[in-house]
Structure formats: structure tokens, C-alpha cells
Write a protein that binds this DNA or RNA. Structure first.
Lengths: 149, 149
DNA sequence: TCATTAAAAGATAAAAAGGTCTTTTAATAA
DNA sequence: TTATTAAAAGACCTTTTTATCTTTTAATGA
């Protein structure tokens, strides 16, 4: 569904939402180790997320990455869109170019409702609200211990 | 969501369901051109689908690929499983290794219901039933004219 | 203003997915 | 039994994705 890059982006942004703020910036290294994602790859990703105004950064001593209040008003779909684009969601499940209710692929009416609902769900909640829920419910935010078999 | 290979597999199997039978075998070339998929790539795919008993084949003159009655009793999920495996469906949406209702990732309760329902839908109908529906409703079965932008 | 810190940028490498080509095997019909 | 047809098998190439490394830029504090 999502690229690995997109998954890392969602996880790390939620991590920043929970652990950083304008007065408490976090380096890539710390985030990468915390959610167990390759450091240089995450650094690249962060550059893109900064350009996309999903997260913020400053250089130099005490510099690092963090979320502003404005960043926190974005939603999960914004993160995914910034990395993968929306095509991943909007494209036909079977890869047909012309697939809509007038000209549906064999699984169109099966897949379409799900896709729309899921899309809505990812637009429903802001990063801030997601983050709040995570800290309240103690949800998992790391890839540590991933079984690579 | 699905690999391209898996999409080709579903499309081409449904094509065989509609246009072939034990007495009317079809060559890869014809299928590849009909659904507009790369010929040698589809040939490889078909080998795997034959090994997985999703489709059938015979060599030699008048040989080709076709579906037996037994093949037709399989469902769409069997095709996907044969190419991509079921992991694509069962894996955590954010890539976490331990993600279940006891230890959910941030989007677990959003994604899980959809995934289960979709999985069920793909098990509901046999290839035969799908095929019948397609020929009755004239659904699209080709990638022709795909916009590659 | 200078040393230090940490991100930005860019070049490069490794792995996976997608796609192609050539040779071999099996079936059939002449 | 032989020529022909079409799939099976295996080697190979290309593109995309994932991941790494090195150099440059900007911010800060001494």
C-alpha cells in the first residue's frame, strides 16, 4: 500500500509530535534510533518533509527537527501525499487507467467504498489529535525487533 | 497495494476465464496483446500461475493456457496469494512487526476493519462467478491506453 | 570571528521489482 | 519419426526504491 518511505514519514512525524516542540528540537539520529529506521535514509526523508512543510528544522547547535503548531494541524494524509503522492490511493486497484463507476474494473465496486472511507479517516484527525491519542493509549511507535525473514 | 505482477495475474486469469476453456486454449501472446501487458513478463507469470494451479497449460500445436472447471472454483484472493503472498494484506499498514488489537499501531483500528472486509470480499466469489459478472456487465479488462505520465 | 554543531545537498551504492531474451522440453500433426 | 508449435526454464538487463556517504551551509555560543 504505502512505500516504506511513507511509513517512516508517518511514524517519525508522529514521534516528533509526541516528543518535540519549538523549544525542544530533536536530531535525525535520535529519531532514527528511537523508531529504528535507517539514519541517512530518514535524514533524506526529513529534508523532503521540511520542504513540504510537514515538519520544521533549524541548523546548528541545539538545532534539529520539531513540529510547530501549524505543522500539528496537518493530517496523516498530508504526510502520505508529500512522500507517495495521492495516486497510490486514487489509482485503480487493478491498475486500469479508466476505472470509475461508469466504466468499472472487475473489483471496482468492491474496492472503491473502502478506499474512500480510509481516505476520509486519514483526513479526519490532525497530527496533534493523533499524537494525543497515542500518548494516552501508549501505542507502538517503533519498528524495533522487526522480523526480516 | 498489489504488485504489478499481481494485477496482471488477476486481469489475465479473468481474461482466460472469459475466453478460454479446455477445448479452446489461448497463447500468452494473444492474452498479452488483449489485455495490453508485456508478453515475456506475462509468460513468466503464467508459469508461476500454472505451478500454483490457478491456471492450466499444454505445450505444442493447439497448446496454450486455459482454465479447467477446478481452476474456476478458485477465488481472486488465491491469485493474489500465489503471486504476492498474503503478507501484503496481513502486514501492519505502517510496517510495524507487532501490531494487533492488544498492541496497535497508531492507525490499526482505522485500517483493520477495511482490510478484513476487503479480504472477505475477495474470497466471496469464485473466478467463475467473477467472470460471469464481467461478461454480463461488460466490464473493462485491459490496460490499453494507460496514461504513463 | 571562529570553532562547533546539526541540517541541506548531492553523489553513489545496493536491493528489489519489472521486463527481455535465448535455449530446452513436450505435444501434436503430417 | 520428424518438423512444428507453444510452453518451461533460466540467464540477463533496466528501472525504481531503499539506503549510504561526503561535502556544504547555516546557526549558535564561546
Amino acid at each position: 500500500m504505502l512505500s516504506r518511505a511513507s511509513k517512516y514519514a508517518v511514524l517519525s512525524t508522529l514521534f516528533l509530535a509526541e516528543h518535540s516542540n519549538v523549544d525542544k528540537k530533536i536530531s535525525v539520529k535520535v529519531v532514527a534510533e528511537s523508531i529504528d529506521v535507517p539514519n541517512p535514509f530518514l535524514a533524506k526523508l526529513f529534508q523532503q518533509l521540511v520542504r513540504g512543510k510537514i515538519i520544521s528544522s533549524t541548523k546548528g547547535p541545539n538545532g534539529g527537527f520539531f513540529l510547530t503548531e501549524k505543522n500539528r494541524q496537518k493530517n496523516v494524509l498530508d504526510i502520505i501525499e508529500n512522500i507517495d503522492g495521492l495516486n497510490k490511493f486514487n489509482d485503480c486497484f487493478l491498475g486500469l487507467n479508466e476505472c470509475d463507476s461508469k466504466n468499472p474494473c472487475p473489483v471496482h465496486f468492491i474496492v472503491e467504498p473502502f478506499k474512500n472511507s480510509l481516505l476520509g479517516k486519514f483526513r479526519d484527525k490532525t497530527i496533534q489529535e493523533f499524537s494525543k491519542e497515542i500518548s494516552e493509549n501508549g501505542r507502538v511507535l517503533t519498528l524495533k525487533g522487526l522480523d526480516l525473514s
